[in-house]
Design a protein around this nucleic acid. Structure first.
Lengths: 226, 226
DNA sequence: GATCTGTTTTATGGAATACAAACAAACTTA
DNA sequence: TAAGTTTGTTTGTATTCCATAAAACAGATC
């Protein structure tokens, strides 16, 4: 299985869209290509891409409206708008905020790729500096680090992912099968046993602060209290 | 002695091709002249030219397909496309092409030479300014240098390429098979082992800043954390 | 209390990965 | 051209990670 970075591309001119798609694929991205706004929204929900490249003017649903709806579900996702000349610039400029960027058509593929990397970089930096407190522990998901005072231990990928899910719902029950489908892909018997093992491992690694506990809620899941 | 700059020229009309070849040679370039896409790919692999001048429409393999394959091996090489009138202009214009340029036939030799120099210039600039920070280290891809404070070590080509890929995705997982196909050409078992060895080498060379680490994500790839 | 069902923990084995060292090929230098 | 060097591949063994198995445990139900 490949873990390429997913980019959602919505562009109604198929000729241009195909060229963009192929160029991005050459650079190692996994491109989800849609030709209208509605399709794009569905694809977004199904695939959860890391970045959006959207034509502003599209049939069914324009780029701005689309972003408003997606931002309601994920307010940090970076977006690059593609705007035709005909579109008045000030509208776009006003929108050129936050995690967004825009490119006036015609643009060079190099420009687009530079901007994609710039936005992904910013996103990475933001994510990699995000440090969560769990009791006395400091937890960094993307660095897979769990620190306490001076000491720091490195978690495995699975451990880190699992702890992240638990910490997102701290002091509330995290559903067993939800974690299983999200991390393991499905919630069959064996994966559930496997997850038990990881719970044990995490408990051990979190054992130095006894205010931090992973409680079981029989039949439902686990609760990280701290 | 300074070597001549190699330019790969692929053009199926031999009359035109010969004229271009000779003009470029007059300007001091070393021109590798091919008359179809397949031959061009082989010549590329054997000679590693610095720049490509390609007819879009060619027998055996057209220019776009050819570039896609070459870009998989070297994603920065500049390309100048030669397009016949018959080719729809808008596709090309919309493309605008990254690190690329295009010339509509008929064109003057002057134009071609100006563009060649422009692209080579850009390439030089990009390469010399390519210095990335990795923790306390400074890394320059095209110079293959890894510096820390006063010290500086030279990386081998493979080491540098690999580190570059990792650093492009820092703090996120870089897919194993993606690296393998991009650097080694395919992701079979043996190349994977070879890559392991390079990961070990890089870890050693990066070991002086312990905030920099290459983590493994079992079954997926590696993550450069810093 | 006996039994059932779901949870916790420790143990085990296989696959993926780590690393050192031997090797081969390409390139330098004398 | 031969000897040394550098680079990348191959090989062999050690280690890590995770899935699965097995066994001990705890609540619930009868």
């Amino acid at each position: 299985m490949t873990e390429k970075i997913k980019i959602l591309l919505a562009e109604d001119e198929t000729a241009l869209g195909t060229i963009i798609k192929e160029s991005l694929e050459t650079r190692g991205f996994d491109v989800l290509f849609c030709t209208n706004g509605e399709q794009a929204l569905n694809t977004y929900r199904a695939e959860k891409p890391e970045l959006l490249v959207l034509d502003v003017m599209m049939p069914k649903k324009d780029g701005f409206t689309l972003v408003k709806e997606i931002r309601a579900e994920n307010d940090k996702i970076p977006v690059i708008f593609l705007t035709s000349k005909s579109r008045t610039e000030d509208v776009v400029e006003g929108f050129g905020l936050g995690g967004n960027d825009y490119l006036k058509k015609p643009f060079s593929m190099e420009e687009l790729i530079v901007r994609i990397h710039a936005l992904l970089d910013r996103k990475r930096k933001r994510e990699s500096s995000e440090e969560v407190s769990i009791g006395k522990y400091r937890f960094n998901l993307s660095k897979q680090k769990l620190g306490l005072g001076e000491k720091e231990q490195t978690l495995t990928h699975r451990e880190a992912q699992l702890l992240f899910h638990l910490s997102e719902n701290r002091n509330a029950v995290t559903d067993r099968s939800l974690i299983l489908t999200q991390l393991w892909g499905n919630d069959d018997f064996f994966n559930a046993r496997s997850m038990d093992v990881f719970i044990t491992k995490l408990r051990k690694k979190l054992s130095e602060d006894e205010t931090v506990e992973i409680l079981n809620v029989r039949g439902y899941g686990y609760k990280l209290v701290c």
